[in-house]
Amino acid sequence: MIRNLTIALIYFLPVIFVQLFFVPLISFRFIVPDLIVIFLVFYSLRDGRIFGSVLGFFVGFLFDLFSGGIIGISMFTKTLVGFTAGSFKDEHNDIESRNILFVLGVILLASILNSVFFTFLSINEIINFVEVIFNQGVLGGVYTVFLSIPFVLFKVWRYLK
């Protein structure tokens, strides 16, 4: 598992880089898709809850470090994403045999969870919480799903070690 985890983390370095420096260029107002969630869902659906949680934990840590944000927030949200997406792994049906809509649905759920908990942990006080959750969670989730369509169609998980 440690070897697989190390390889996965190496794969994630360019993903984090793109997320930090290029994905904001396609943000609309403050709504931004999350490339890390997409790849984390692929790994978790393929390798399960434990691998997803541990990978999410370390990927979140790297993202917090490189982004200059508060260390711990992305660690928490990405661990949660890994665990949640890993819960949809089916021993009898691997990710390859799953319906594309099912994978997109998991990405949507994971992205909403990621945004909601990121917002929860980031704020001191907030008034229009529902609106923030809608903007960041739902709209951000839909945007992430939209971005993930080519990755899902080309079954990118085949190329992930």
């Binding site: 930090l20 420096f21 904001p24 943000s27 403050f30 931004v32 982004s67 200059g68 944000g69 508060i70 927030i73 990121f118 917002t119 980031s122 704020i123 907030i126 923030v132 903007n135 960041q136």
Partner: peptide, 10 residues
């Protein structure tokens, strides 16, 4: 780089 988010503008 911009950490784009509704709550964590960095």
């Amino acid at each position: 780089s911009k950490l784009v988010s509704d709550v964590q503008g960095n």
